[in-house]
């Protein structure tokens, strides 16, 4: 009975134990604090020489970590708040994502940048955002998001073993999610390879009739989508299949949809994408575009995302901007009704 946080922490411990090339860099990562969200707790006690607490210099220490990676070490960098990825864009886009390729393709850059995105904690406009979409479509960069429906620590360990750079997108509220949440005991899931080492989980209500709707989601929103899925099944008799993707980019092999998603869509002909980032130019737009491009049938389509607004601090204002279970249910209901009509 462990949480996403415990799984990620165990993944880091396991990676550091297994490979002495693994280093941790980030702000306030030393014990007893163990990082702002405690993902790095215990590491500096167990491996004092390989956990480096940094000055508040995100661009600088991501660059330093790139130098470590180019020199054969395997750094894992923590960016304390996902919002601060704006500070590392040059290092990511003009640096670490390109060095392998532009120098002829033989260099490895085994570097993981972990960061928690997301709101619902009242941290306000610069500490609550979901910004990974800014880094989708960057050639040479893999963008992953762990899920309670798969194996968060296992995904992190695989990312650390990856010879190329990874942006590993966590979520603040997701940390306390249980991997075997009893609230989800009525759900069953099938796992398959999404792409590379990333997994796709196809989640449905056990024993339910044939699904009418496919929901695509990742990270914390996948878990909210699962809550919506249960609510729809029990209260509205709308049956859905939730496809949880660990890898946001590249989305699927050779520019296609991930197979799990394509398989589900063939059955339902109806797609709802769900994400916490702002609506316009979001992850869902790419998923929808690929679905339409690759699907033989006409699809019902809708997207759930945050309003195109900064994230306010006030509880009621924040809730009005970010998508929750009821927003997902409402969007699904509308989509299914439109198709039935």
């Amino acid at each position: 009975m462990s949480t996403v946080l415990e799984s990620l922490n165990a993944g880091l411990h396991g990676a550091m134990e297994a490979n002495e090339s693994v280093y941790i860099l980030g702000e306030d990562v030393l014990d007893p604090y163990g990082g702002a969200f405690k993902v790095t707790r215990g590491l500096s006690t167990a491996y004092p020489d390989r956990v480096i607490t940094t000055p508040v210099s995100e661009a600088g220490f991501v660059g330093v970590a790139t130098g470590l990676a180019l020199s054969g070490l395997r750094p894992v960098v923590e960016i304390m708040f996902g919002d601060f990825v704006t500070l590392i864009t040059d290092q990511v886009i003009n640096g670490l994502s390109k060095y392998g390729w532009m120098y002829g393709g033989a260099l490895e850059i085994p570097l993981v940048i972990r960061t928690p995105m997301g709101g619902r904690r009242g941290y306000g406009p610069t500490h609550s955002q979901t910004l990974e979409k800014l880094f989708l479509g960057v050639p040479g960069l893999r963008v992953l998001a762990p899920s309670a429906f798969t194996d968060p620590g296992g995904l992190l360990r695989a990312a650390i073993d990856d010879p190329g750079p990874v942006l590993f997108v966590e979520n603040k509220l997701q940390y306390q999610r249980r991997l075997d949440d009893p609230a989800f005991s009525a759900l069953e899931s099938r796992l398959q390879v999404q792409e590379g080492y990333a997994t796709a989980a196809t989640v449905g209500v056990a024993g339910a009739p044939r699904p009418q709707l496919t929901i695509a989601a990742y990270g914390d929103m996948a878990e909210r989508a699962a809550e919506a899925q249960l609510k729809m099944a029990y209260e509205l008799e709308i049956f859905s299949e939730l496809v949880v993707l660990e890898q946001l980019d590249p989305l699927g092999p050779s520019g296609d949809l991930p197979r799990a998603l394509a398989d589900s869509l063939r059955q339902t002909g109806c797609l709802l994408t769900v994400e916490e980032g702002t609506h316009t130019h979001g992850w869902g737009a790419e998923v929808v575009a690929r679905a339409v491009e690759t699907s033989a049938q006409k699809l019902g389509i809708a997207r759930v995302a945050a309003f195109d607004s900064p994230v306010p601090a006030s509880r009621v204002l924040e809730a009005s901007v970010l998508p929750d279970v009821d927003v997902i249910v409402g969007a699904a209901q509308k989509l299914v009704a439109a198709l039935d009509g």
């Binding site: 991501v62 790139t66 130098g67 020199s71 040059d90 640096g95």
Partner: peptide, 22 residues
Amino acid sequence: YSNGVLGSAIPVATGMGLAGRL
């Protein structure tokens, strides 16, 4: 190695040096 973005390589080079010390 070389990179055309001014300043961008300075932390990277610093990390390469640090790797040697580690």
